[in-house]
Every structure is written in structure tokens, then in C-alpha cells.
Design a protein around this nucleic acid. Structure first.
Lengths: 170, 170
DNA sequence: TCAAACATGTAACACGTTACATGATTTG
DNA sequence: CAAATCATGTAACGTGTTACATGTTTGA
């Protein structure tokens, strides 16, 4: 959800669409890196929904649209941020979209959401372990390898959340 | 690319669209798990392109369309499989799409592609390390955390390819 | 008998990318 | 003076999902 990322950026300071693209490449690019063809229409939608205000200025002969988040936008952003992290089975790094903005959430709530996330990942891991048991004898080596990758990857993510993130927070 | 996954399944045996969905949930579901709304149109396209043949039968009163891959389809699949793995910066597990089918490739070629893939991931990792140096002083803790996740995740993937995959293959 | 599994398919929608279109200013 | 950077935007396309539509057979 590009729109929420942009809203999150505006929590820090006012920006133009161009600024946001720069900012993205310096911060979220590992897990979200939207193109201008996605940023500008998103900004327009955020404006239509009444979550942001924009100020048009002309600087060095160039039209500049500076966006700022309003009260309604902040409420919407915080509502999104404090709702459960939906970890995708096929892409754990999707969880970072929210974790990235956890400075805007009370510590205890962040920890609660991360613990919930760890639990979800653990369920994914267990379903893969079950699958592995079922399939162990028949599957070809590469099929088994990719299964193992999944299991190890879930382990890595849980370990990272537990040992690195939560320990760092307390 | 769902179409290539389906083509890959047909390398093993003839199947219906329904079979492929089952097969997916038992094998590739960790990194690819397409819905029927994606599988059936893909199968139609593969047929239009002349990569598969289909045989319609009626079994227990139900229409059944059994697909099989033809020579042209095999050529296309192997062409895809032997081309460089395009690892996404935001989703390393996308590499599994090809690795899963590496039993259809000569060992040396698989190893070459994996080594190339490791190299690409290493470049991603280095760009994140550079970014971290640039940003280390100013960024907030969670921003730094997600950066670290990226770096660690690339490390995990490379380590897995190197130590687990390639070692297992020799 | 009723739900689950078998079996196929379409239409609307979501969300993103690439390429195109435009044009000023700054820097080598 | 040419290229990069600043700055905004649209249109076509790609690729997937969810929900709907339809119907049979099998098992509890």
C-alpha cells in the first residue's frame, strides 16, 4: 500500500512527490520502492480522500506541489499502523512496511504487534514442516531444497524479530 | 510468471488445471500460490501460444481438460529456466521459481546460475551497506532496523545458496 | 441430506510498472 | 552546450486477486 507509506513520510515533514521518491530510495527501498507512475496518482487519491493538503508554489520557474498531512490523515495513518501486521506467506519483508514507522506507536503496542507477527510466521513455518513430513520421501532434491529455504527463512525472520528487534526495544 | 510454473509442472506429468492448483499447494506454495482465476486463463494462453496440447474427457459426468506439454513448450520452458535468475531487490524468494525446477538443467549450468544470483544479491547487499553508512547518524532506530533486516536477509540468502544449495549439489 | 471435494470458467477490481509527454534549471 | 537533475503527470499494459456462476459426485 503505497498510499500509507507516503502518508507515513508526511508524518515527518511536508514533501513533494519528487521528494518522496528520493526519500524512499534512501529509506524503504529494500521493501518498497514505488515509481513516479505510482506515487503521483497515489498523492492525488490521498488528496481526494481528504487526508492531505497541498500548497502549489513556483520555485525557479518550476511548479511545485508540496503536500502536508492533516488531522484526518494522521488518524487514518495511525489506524493502519496500529492494526495487525498482515505478513504475506510468500513475502515476510512485507512486515517491514509497518515496522519502519513504529516510532509513531507506543512501545508496548509495537511489541504486541511484533509478537503477533512472530506467531503468524510460526504458523506458516509449522505448515511447511508438516508439508515436508508429508512429501519427504517422494519429492525431488530441489523441491525439498526450496521447502527448506522457506522454513529457514521463516526461522530467520522470527529470530530477527525476537532477538534483534524486541531486545533492542526494551 | 505463473505460466512458466504451470509449464514446469507439465514437464513431470499431464495435469488438469485443478491438479495444478493441488500440486502447487504441495510444492511451490511458499513462493508461488496462484488462484484458479489466474491458473485457468494462463492455461488458455499457453494453449493459444502452442506450448501445450489438451485432451477433453468426461469422467464421472464432469468435464475434464487434461493438458500436456509439447516440444515447443519444452523448448520455451528450458529457455526460460536457463536464462539468468532475476532476483528482485525486494523479494529474494522469487529466485526459488527457477531453482525449484533445476532438476531439468545440467548441474554445471545450475551452479553457474546460482553463483550469478549470489553475485547479484551481494551487489544489493553492498548498496544497502553504503546506504547505512550514509544514513547511520540521522535515521531513527526503526529505519535503521529495517535496513539491518535487509542486509541480514541478503546475507541469509547468500549463505543458504552457497553453503546449503551448492554444497548439496556437488 | 448436506457439506466437501471435484472441475471449469468469467468479470470486476486492485495495484503496480514502463514508456511517453513536457519543460525549466543547474552543472560539467 | 549537453547531460543530469528537478518536477509533474498520463496511458497502456501486465499480472494478479476476489467474487460470482455452474454443476456433479462422494463421503459423513
Amino acid at each position: 500500500m503505497t498510499e500509507y507509506i507516503l502518508l507515513g513520510f508526511l508524518m515527518e515533514k511536508d514533501m513533494t512527490g519528487y521528494d518522496m521518491k528520493q526519500h524512499m530510495s534512501m529509506s524503504t527501498s529494500y521493501f518498497v520502492d514505488a515509481s513516479f507512475g505510482s506515487i503521483y496518482p497515489s498523492l492525488k487519491r490521498l488528496n481526494n480522500k481528504g487526508f492531505v493538503a497541498l500548497k502549489e508554489t513556483i520555485e525557479n520557474g518550476k511548479l511545485k506541489k508540496t503536500y502536508s498531512i492533516n488531522e484526518q490523515g494522521k488518524v487514518e495513518f495511525l489506524k493502519w499502523l496500529s492494526s495487525p501486521i498482515m505478513v504475506s506467506r510468500t513475502d515476510i519483508s512485507s512486515a517491514l512496511e509497518k515496522i519502519f514507522f513504529f516510532r509513531y506507536l507506543p512501545h508496548e503496542q509495537s511489541i504486541f504487534l511484533i509478537e503477533q507477527c512472530i506467531h503468524d510466521i510460526d504458523r506458516y513455518k509449522n505448515s511447511l514442516l508438516e508439508l515436508k513430513n508429508k512429501v519427504d520421501h517422494e519429492a525431488d532434491p530441489f523441491g525439498l531444497c526450496t521447502l527448506d529455504f522457506g522454513i529457514d527463512c521463516y526461522d530467520f525472520a522470527m529470530h530477527w524479530c525476537e532477538e534483534y528487534l524486541i531486545n533492542k526495544m526494551r
